[in-house]
């Protein structure tokens, strides 16, 4: 991801808040890091599409940025298929896979 250079970037506190995706579900949507998507935009998509809080959206966004990937939601195969296509419509680089197959 990249940082919009017009406006100052965020601080890195509160990164490791404990909110974690529920991995009991059998399938997950994975978002991959890329050098184009803005950090602010990725947070915006997580808030807008999934309805995540600002803090959770930011934690997941930073995990994508720093770890290269993050499992951002889970559910049935049908649900993760739908979420993956929705994230593609936003231009995020997303795939779905069986939970725990990393």
């Amino acid at each position: 991801m990249t940082v919009g250079f017009a406006i100052g970037t965020d601080t890195k506190e509160e990164v490791r808040t404990a909110e974690k995706t529920d991995l009991d579900q059998p399938w997950v949507v994975v978002v991959w890091n890329d050098p184009v998507n803005l950090m602010s935009y990725v947070s915006f998509v997580f808030q807008t599409y999934f309805g995540y809080s600002e803090a959770k959206a930011r934690t997941l966004m930073l995990e994508v940025h720093e770890a290269g990937r993050s499992a951002v939601c889970s559910g049935t195969r049908e649900k993760v298929e739908q979420d993956t296509v929705a994230l593609h419509s936003y231009g995020l680089w997303a795939t779905f896979e069986k939970a725990g197959s990393e």
């Binding site: 990249t2 919009g4 250079f5 017009a6 406006i7 803005l38 602010s40 935009y41 947070s43 915006f44 808030q47 807008t48 600002e54």
Partner: peptide
């Protein structure tokens, strides 16, 4: 590219502010 990036960043920041 830099211009469109600047434009998108400003739009997203405005929307995040509105959501807040």
């Amino acid at each position: 590219y830099n211009f469109i990036t600047w434009l998108q960043e400003s739009l997203v920041q405005a929307m995040l502010k509105a959501a807040k």
